[in-house]
Amino acid sequence: MNAPAVSFRRARVDAVVALIADCLAAAGLSRDNAAAVAELMTEADLTGADGHGVFRLPQYVRRLRAGGFNRTPSITVDRTAPATALVDGDNGMGHLVVKRAAEAAIDIARETGVAWVGVRRSNHAGSAGLYAELPVRHGMVGIYSAVASANHMAVWGGKELLLGTNPLAIAVPTGAGPMVLDMATTIVSYGTVKKYALQGLPMPEGWLIDRDTGEPITDPARSGQGLLLPIGGYKGSGLSLMLGVLAGILNGAAFGRDCVDFNADDTSETDTGQLVIAVDIARFVPLDRFTAEVDRHMADLRASARLPGVEAIRLPGDRRRECRTERREAGIPLPAALIVQLDKVAAELGVTPLFER
């Protein structure tokens, strides 16, 4: 099957930030909170995580207006031990909650060398790599995981939707900027499936299978009938399970059957669980030495012998860095179908449309 042509238009980065902030403020967030979320959402687009940036704005606005998100949350941090804390998000937007958790982890790690901060009563927070990167700016290793805000995978061998795409992101500093591994525990995130559905594109085989027959599903409109496949077979299923235990059960947050599908429900509290870990590199080795050694080994890996047909060795963070550089200059590419949705949201909220800014 040949994919239909999809037209894109480039939007200025500052215009995207302003549109998101204005829409979220019009939907009930404070100006400061709307601006903070807008920066994080746009950063997702800049780093190539297109399923987690402005693409999510219509859904977030719906939940704000329907009461699914608390517009004025009181986010609290409970320091449970010298190196641990538990954040209660008060059902606020996930970006605000996890940003606060990352800030707490950084502050604690400055004192103790390492910090583990759990999160409960949060929501979908977008791209995992955003939050793993935050500690890197302070000379630390950052690790982030979450219970996905909907179940799209089964335990290995099962067919019930009881596990999520539960992501894992790890970031370390290098001379060229953060090296970031940002991955779902399924072959693709559900945001990617939604993106294909919006653009009317067929999906490759190997992403989704029918829950009853096990046959491949390539029509994203049929995704509700399917299971997302885990990375690495049973290993990906097991990794999703363990991350769900750490980010969900350990924090008193939702897991398994208790998860609320925020794609289908705009009003219920999702009680999403997340975790942020920060490790102060200087407690182990001087930061400049660590960075130099990472750079040396990265150079060695890039220069290693390649398999036939491989033009270049690519490492975690390469695409993020290239996207950020290219999109800051050329603008963020948006498909025509998404622009229609964004214009509709802007009109409903009485804010200036994206391409009139």
Rank of each mutant, 00 (worst) to 15 (best):
L168G: 10
S30C: 11
T267F: 05
P173A: 06
E111Q: 05
M140N: 01
E103K: 02
E103H: 05
S304A: 15
F55T: 10
E111S: 05
T72Q: 15
D266I: 08
I75W: 09
I277K: 01
A5P: 15
G238Q: 02
S237R: 01
L64M: 03
A27K: 00
T76F: 08
F355K: 00
V285I: 11
E311W: 06
G317I: 08
A34S: 15
A35D: 15
T165D: 06
T80D: 10
G200L: 04
D271T: 01
R314S: 15
H124I: 07
A303N: 14
Y234H: 12
T165P: 04
A197E: 15
L342P: 03
M298I: 14
T174L: 07
L134A: 13
I277Y: 04
F290K: 08
I281N: 12
L198C: 08
T186Q: 01
G233Q: 02
R31L: 13
F355I: 00
F284A: 14
P335W: 03
R320I: 07
F55M: 14
D300G: 13
A282W: 00
R283E: 11
R121P: 04
P308S: 14
T352M: 10
R283F: 08
G256F: 00
G157T: 07
L181M: 11
V245S: 03
R289K: 09
A26V: 00
P230Y: 05
H124N: 12
R289T: 14
G236W: 01
I20W: 00
E160F: 00
G126S: 07
N91M: 10
I231Y: 04
A132H: 05
V193H: 01
T352Q: 09
D212G: 10
G177W: 00
R283A: 10
R257M: 04
D14F: 03
I108A: 08
R71Y: 08
I75C: 13
A109K: 00
R63K: 12
T47I: 15
A49V: 15
Q341V: 03
Q274C: 12
R314I: 13
G309Q: 13
G252Y: 04
L239R: 00
G252R: 02
A303Q: 12
G206N: 04
G206Y: 07
S122G: 15
V13Y: 10
A303L: 09
G175D: 06
A146V: 08
E215D: 07
